[in-house]
Design a binder for these strands. Structure first.
Length: 260
DNA sequence: ATGCCCACGACACGTGGA
């Protein structure tokens, strides 16, 4: 089973890029972020036509997450548990019933958090604390799961093309990294780093200043696996192809293959 | 030169992204 994550930066603006990638790559499951549209405007039919079940958690103009799956989905939850006052659409979770077993999939769009300090950074850290609690709850089930998406966190300086330029940014702040490593220290596996333990492995390139052409990127999209999922990990990679196309998202897909 | 792009929504040189 191939499970991918892609921040598309508007599903409506990106629909041609998304459908061509689904046709060429045929991932079994895709977590999408930054839909930037309410559920009623999500291009559901166009994606269902390609053989995908669709679960969306959108909102007007900002945020928005979805899970696409070639297998049926069960027990979908919309929104990250732990704060009923949080009205930002940044989390969706579902169980995928594969041919040879099931896996729980959480798709997330973690808050950017800039500027630092400020209420947006406080919101980011609180959101990460809730994600850690959610991961603990899922780990207690002792089943395969993946938490994938745009974490808005460069775990190490090597995950930034220019660490000095990013110093103090919410994506590299120690408070952000501490929480990312708290997640890993629960026993989760950063799937990409299992195969590429160090060095550049970017998933995002700014639209500005020719960042893509100069490979001035960031590694901020991650797939974190529970022990039961990591046991089944067979491959993980970043597909840079979509980033080089016309009308590209500023992010590109990351994917892993699990023996499920 | 910490500016330069992109998308949204409804014109605002507005906001948010990262």
């Amino acid at each position: 089973m191939i499970i991918a994550s892609w921040n598309v930066n508007s599903i409506r603006a990106r629909l041609p890029r998304v459908t061509e990638w689904l046709k060429e790559f045929s991932p079994d499951v895709v977590m999408l972020q930054e839909l930037k549209c309410p559920d009623e405007n999500f291009p559901r039919l166009e994606i269902e036509e390609l053989g995908y079940h669709v679960a969306t958690h959108g909102q007007k103009a900002y945020n928005g997450v979805a899970i696409l799956s070639q297998y049926p989905m069960e027990d979908v939850i919309y929104g990250l548990p732990g704060d009923d006052s949080d009205d930002q659409a940044r989390y969706i979770e579902a169980t995928i019933k594969g041919a040879n077993g099931k896996i729980r999939v959480g798709g997330l769009y973690l808050p950017n958090g800039n500027p630092v300090p400020g209420p947006k950074f406080d919101y980011k850290l609180g959101w990460m604390d809730r994600l850690i609690l959610r991961a603990k709850a899922l780990l207690a089930r002792e089943q395969a799961f993946v938490l994938g998406g745009d974490y808005n966190c460069c775990p190490k300086d090597e995950d930034c093309y220019d660490p000095a330029r990013m110093a103090g940014d919410a994506l590299t702040r120690p408070e952000t990294r501490d929480r990312y490593y708290s997640l890993l220290n629960l026993g989760l596996t950063d799937a990409l780093r299992h195969y590429a333990p160090s060095g550049p492995a970017y998933t995002y390139w700014d639209y500005q200043r020719g960042a893509w052409q100069k490979d001035n990127g960031l590694r901020i999209d991650h797939l974190l696996l529970s022990p039961q999922a990591a046991d089944r990990l067979r491959r993980c990679d970043i597909d840079r192809t979509p980033r080089g196309k016309e009308k590209a998202s500023d992010h590109t897909p990351i994917w892993c293959e699990l023996e499920i």
